[in-house]
Design a protein around this nucleic acid. Structure first.
Lengths: 409, 409
DNA sequence: CTAGTTTGTCGTGCCCTCGGACGAATTCGA
DNA sequence: TCGAATTCGTCCGAGGGCACGACAAACTAG
């Protein structure tokens, strides 16, 4: 009676779940293979793998490769199985300041449907915005249905502090949202209660996308810097999203790069944002900012002026690149990542930012003498966060395939 | 044939191992309890728990509580089991610049034997130093034997970059060691091949000790700053030691706090060490440093002068505290820890360092508005790293009790 | 066409956990 | 003082799940 609050902290691992996950994960990571090869690589028994593969095919997650090139080895050729790119799909959603994105991938990570709406959400009502996002999502789902794909879950990327467990957006200064139950609202608006909805921070998910499908493939420790309105970082530690004790991890924009620097909106001085935040760059480059212009257009203006050789713009980018390099050197000294990925606006500005960043890293990172840190540029573009959201769902499926229901006939 | 390199990546989880671990871990975390209570809390079946407890008693890890106060509930009273503080012991060792420490704890974490030798190891031969450490360890082991305790494994804390998997110390600038096979050398010197030896970084282990037995008990994310000769940090992420991609994580001493600061020995400028490293503090406080004085004495000198109200010393500590606060604000913005622990020399200097650190954190940490970060002072002293090393071994036992052999009669 | 090799499946047995039944130990109430 | 109620620990049987070995299938090499 007293122990009711202490119900099973870990639900029955059930052994089966982990085994199914082992096999599916192996196929996802190493590509198609025969049952015998999978058994050899995972350490499971051949017959066990056979059994597990049968279940996974039944669940619509794997399929036997229909025909194959003539085998080159002696002996009976194996019947290859691979991830099924039909059947199950993952939804990746994003609400950001001036756009909404929805996309869906199959298990292999390929995008099968997408939808992007540019709209300014600043100060708008969460219910309204999420209802619009739900409409978009329904369109994507019907598109999926035409391809024979069935979504199993959705993840939403939002720009702010998230309580992941509760699916709530605690605080999003740029949206001017506060304590919005995103998962609940979106679930209601979708009218599909059987579709689980997860919520996570946009920077974290962009970092995850880089890890899975972008510049950080194969890495375990990654830092993704996204210069949007502010300067945020998504951190991947040991292959998993790093959130910190209370979800505030990766606040790169307000680390101090200059003790006596300019005052910042946060109340401090010399924050990174005061040098390489979008407003700061525009001001230094003397770009006039009419109200209501989406931030991406402003980045394009900066890039155009830099390409044209405008001295003030080049100076702004040089100073910004140096500050960014100092900040990233600090991050590198603390986190020791495999790779740092520049995303968001910084991807477009990378020709001018990367050289000073590399130079500062060389000079300031202690470990640089032994192992150099890769500085890469994101190629995922605006959809990065939504891609990361979908990847999160794909990972859920790979980790616990048994949680899936078999496809309706 | 081709897959030989890919032998079982995870050895048979064996189900039993994890179950034994679940039960033992529960008792360690929640204290003594009856079999029925453990079953209720872990979700395992009563009979299963009975079975597992019997095995753990057989292994010498648990014991039934001999007598107990009269129970206050109706029904048959449970027979309580608790962690056995006899039988199994964990060895925590440390080699540092000017001392060697060995201690042993029982499973409950209580120190049962210790040994400390002050000696300058700078430039000394790894073989010689580790042979001396092995002698010390043997003395501790005989002391343990008198108490009926049997060591099951040892962990060594070293000040430098460690390849944890290989048990090698790659680089220790202060010791002037390079690529020393610490685990191997110590194992040979001990002449006890059945005693596994692990190696880890001293700052990491001190942080772990704070998490387990010190100021960070119950936290999951912790930063431990140790001001010794240099300035190092140990980071705990999600209850586990954070090492980074290549083991360089937590290099706090060389993050930039002042763009135009003093040049640093590392080749950069404005590193934290140039302000709050021991040399910097001593220079600013105008303390003369005769050669060969252990660093701890110098810290005591600083503290004495500060207590006496020496203006130059107070100024040095004020400036150092501010720089430390700026650096820790950066760490907090990135890592979002529950608690920051000041250890090493900073523990002794904490009366003068903590106020400016707290003040900078308040002003510069974005999350400080919602959740304040605790700044604590280490109470573990010089033994912190060795305690953490022993805690690591205890954790190994708790995680996989079946790896233990039954005590010799 | 035969020997050799590798693959996938099937039957058997073991390990481990669960669930229920039952004796044991204690409190409460008559 | 004694029985009812309650809770604890153990025993026994059942079933899930994996490993092992045997065997048929499929293919190459000569």
């Amino acid at each position: 009676m007293t122990a009711v609050g202490a119900v099973p902290p870990v639900e029955p691992p059930s052994a089966r779940r982990t085994s199914l996950g082992t096999v599916l994960r192996h196929v996802a990571d190493h590509g198609r293979g025969s049952r015998a090869a999978i058994a050899g690589a995972t350490g499971l028994n051949k017959s066990t793998v056979s059994n597990l593969v049968a279940v996974l095919i039944e669940l619509g997650l794997l399929r036997e490769v229909p025909a194959e090139a003539p085998p080159r080895a002696v002996g009976r050729p194996g019947r290859l199985v691979e991830l099924r790119d039909g059947g199950v799909a993952a939804l990746g959603l994003e609400v950001n300041v001036d756009y909404r994105a929805v996309l869906a991938t199959d298990l292999t990570g390929r995008v099968r449907a997408r939808s992007l709406v540019e709209e300014d959400h600043r100060g708008a009502d969460p219910e309204t915005v999420l209802a619009a996002l739900a409409d978009q999502t329904r369109d994507v789902i019907t598109d999926l249905a035409r391809q024979g794909l069935r979504p199993v879950a959705a993840a939403v990327a939002v720009p702010g502090l998230v309580d992941v467990a509760a699916g709530r957006l605690m605080l999003a200064p740029n949206l001017r949202w506060r304590d919005a139950p995103v998962a609940e609202l979106l679930g209601a608006a979708l009218g599909a209660p059987e579709l689980p909805v997860r919520v996570d921070n946009e920077a974290n998910l962009a970092a995850y996308a880089e890890l899975r499908d972008g510049a950080g493939r194969g890495c375990s420790h990654l830092v993704h810097v996204s210069g949007q309105i502010g300067v945020g970082a998504g951190l991947i530690v040991d292959g998993r999203i790093f959130r910190g004790a209370s979800g505030f991890g990766g606040e790169l924009g307000h680390i101090t790069v200059d003790l006596d620097g300019l005052p910042c909106a946060c109340g401090s001085r010399g924050c990174l944002e005061t040098v390489v935040g979008q407003e700061a760059l525009l001001a230094r480059a003397h770009v006039s900012v009419p109200p209501g212009v989406p931030s991406r257009r402003l980045t394009q203006t900066l890039a155009r002026q830099a390409r044209a050789g405008d001295a003030r713009t080049l100076n702004a980018l040089r100073a910004g690149g140096k500050a960014l390099g100092v900040a990233l050197a600090t991050v590198a000294n603390l986190f020791d990542p495999d790779v740092i990925v520049l995303g968001g606006a910084y991807a477009e500005l990378s020709p001018w930012l990367v050289p000073p960043v590399r130079s500062e890293l060389r000079g300031r990172v202690i470990a640089a003498r032994w192992s150099t840190i890769d500085v890469a540029v994101s190629a995922l573009g605006q959809e990065a966060s939504a891609l990361g959201a979908a990847a999160l769902i794909v990972d859920d499926v790979l980790a616990d395939p048994a949680a899936m229901r078999a496809p309706a006939a």
